[in-house]
Computed example of a mutant assay.
Amino acid sequence: MDDALVIGGTRFIGRHLVEELLEHDYDVTILNRGSHENPFVDDDRVDRVEGDRANEAALEAAATTIDPDAVFDCVAYQPRDVREATRIFEDCEAYVYVSSGSAYGREDIPKREDETPLEPCTPDQATDDSSESYGNRKAEGDRAVFAAAEQGVNAMSVRPPVVYGPHDYTERLDWWIDRVNRFDRVVVPGDGTNVWHRAYVEDVASALRIVAERGEPGEAYNVGDRRLVTLAEMVELIADRLATDIEIVTAGPRELAAGDIELDDYVLYRDYPHVLSTAKLADLGWEATPPAEAMERAVDAHLESDRDGSEHGPDRDAEERVLGILDTV
């Protein structure tokens, strides 16, 4: 494959995917609305077509003018997006849909592509755009991929959990980096052993390329850090990169109540472990970045940015009340 179309391509996963494809000698075209700054505007290796991926005519035009070998769909948020794209690009060598680990509908440990059932999706959920229906819509998009493959389309799916790394506009990890960077004592909810599988963004990008090149039509592939770390271990990795000494203070529901804080007020906290098996992807030859190396890059990018994650997590005054209670115990 030589020519790739990335639907999206300028913000986070898509941005890293474009860089991954360029490193592997693809000719890349991005399709987006132009509502965000284009980091490739001065790169003559990357063409851009303006259009809304929700507009069927825009996709039709891209299919005709670009005729890509591989299509990577980074911004398909409703099942109809996937159904339209797999029809329009039915003749391409690979269509890869960015799904999500939230598509799984049962709390298996780990969640496996061919065993763990997916979330159901009602007609109302399929056309919704709220966070509550996100997993349902991604699951229905997966089912659209499977249906297309049954009709002979080389369609595949990649399911990441929470993605982190440079250019992460969600700022979820930034909140934790900012906490470690500013305070000597860092409150961690629960006992610190919470596990929410995460995926380093460059690993997601390489997974998308490898699935396009080596994956099987009609298959889904989980992607995530090969070695998982707990929430407390994640904080320690951040502190190591910042070369700072911190005290991790764990706090349960009773202690957090002193600051009117609940466990799930903390971003990247999940009560029940969320773990995806990545063995199927590894069998294609994919390799993950070691967590310490991935965190180094994420922390360095945070320090070079103006992101602080302030929209996430409890405020420090509330945490100080919690710490005050713990100091008297």
Rank of each mutant, 00 (worst) to 15 (best):
S130P: 08
S133E: 05
E23S: 15
D184T: 11
D69N: 14
F183H: 15
D91K: 05
D91A: 11
R270F: 10
R185T: 15
H24F: 13
P273D: 11
F146T: 04
Y134F: 09
L323K: 08
L118Q: 02
D240W: 12
T127M: 05
I88L: 10
G51L: 04
Y134E: 01
D42L: 12
L326C: 10
V158N: 01
V195P: 02
V204S: 03
L22N: 10
A212H: 11
V186S: 12
L231S: 04
D240N: 15
E132C: 00
D108F: 04
E247G: 09
E60L: 10
V163Q: 00
D67Y: 09
D245I: 10
D245Q: 15
G224Y: 00
M234G: 07
E119T: 00
V49S: 04
A292L: 15
V153A: 06
I88T: 02
T10G: 07
A207L: 11
E293W: 10
L276Q: 01
R53C: 08
G165I: 00
R316L: 13
V28I: 07
D52V: 11
I238H: 10
K138H: 01
S131R: 13
T65G: 11
V71E: 03
S206A: 14
C92R: 09
V188R: 07
G215T: 09
S133D: 14
S35Q: 13
A149F: 11
K111D: 04
E150G: 13
Y77P: 03
R297I: 09
R48P: 01
N194Q: 12
D27Q: 14
R45D: 06
A62H: 05
E216P: 05
G8C: 04
A294V: 02
L22K: 11
I210M: 10
Y104F: 14
D114I: 08
L263N: 04
D327M: 12
V188G: 02
T328L: 13
T116M: 06
V145I: 08
V322M: 09
V162N: 08
T10R: 12
D271K: 14
E296G: 15
G313K: 09
E20Y: 02
T170A: 05
N32W: 09
A70H: 15
W286H: 14
V229E: 12
I248P: 03
Y169I: 10
R270S: 10
F40S: 02
A62G: 11
G259N: 03
R143C: 02
V267P: 08
R33P: 00
D129V: 06
V223F: 01
D283W: 02
V180L: 09
C92L: 01
L21E: 11
D245N: 15
M295E: 05
V195R: 12
